[in-house]
Write a protein that binds this DNA or RNA. Sequence first.
DNA 1: TCAGAAATGTAGCATGTGCTACATTTACTG
DNA 2: CAGTAAATGTAGCACATGCTACATTTCTGA
Lengths: 141, 141
Amino acid sequence: MTKTTSSIRSGAFKATRKTHSNESAEDYTELVADLIEANGEARTVEVARHLGISHVTALRTIRRLQNEGFFETAKHKPIYLTAKGKKLAAYCKERHQTILQFLNLIGVPEKVAEVDAEGVEHHISKETLRALKEHISKFAE
Amino acid sequence: MTKTTSSIRSGAFKATRKTHSNESAEDYTELVADLIEANGEARTVEVARHLGISHVTALRTIRRLQNEGFFETAKHKPIYLTAKGKKLAAYCKERHQTILQFLNLIGVPEKVAEVDAEGVEHHISKETLRALKEHISKFAE
DNA sequence: TCAGAAATGTAGCATGTGCTACATTTACTG
DNA sequence: CAGTAAATGTAGCACATGCTACATTTCTGA
């Protein structure tokens, strides 16, 4: 019994780590989409302000995400979303709303729900999202 | 309207980042508890195997968590949990079970549920956990 | 128009987490 | 009890993300 009775589920941990590396893409694209909708454009300082980080960190990450094809931007210019970025932002926004709806449904206070949704959303698979939606509809009857 | 119509909710992002820094403590203590329960002791290589990472990475993190008061260990010796570590592990284990129960309840396939639970659990507040439990009981009637 | 404010950019540092390669220590087995 | 396998440890690298300090560019208003 050297193999341990608890099964080795390194797969789940690996999956979580992989998801982590996408979190910034999800947060940034969604935020940039919001800023564009609200202001017509998204600027680095605004992104930094909303995320509560320094403008330098925001700048560096925006550049990385630009290289990865989520943003289009140029020196001293605003940030725009590519098609890829828009798609991701739309998906994230909808997922975020669904999670908030669900947390609201089960009676989680609004402020707590906002924080939890922010942390949790990156780790919700399409299957779970679908299940959540169905579950919500049952109650909306 | 330079302030942006969308409210600035940097608080939620900050909270998520803070939670992130505790994720390894949660994963490691829970895993070490499982290993001790199964094998009588926890060794670095086993931790590494279960997490799907190299033993070097596991070693370094275990050391950090030892400095932070979660583990007791010594060179070439097994890893044990401090009272602080045991408390955290127990809380995490129960939370994990609750989340799995909930995902099962709404019909998420087992394998997907395992991955989602692993990713999500670190971001579930006490309030949401309580709400989840109450929600589950309603259905268990 | 031009000076100061705001935004952007660069340099350089820290921490956490991932890796491989290699060294040493411990444990097992013939 | 010696030799090898397994476990542990060290050195040194990478990347993502956080920071401050300082430089440069752009915008804005008197």
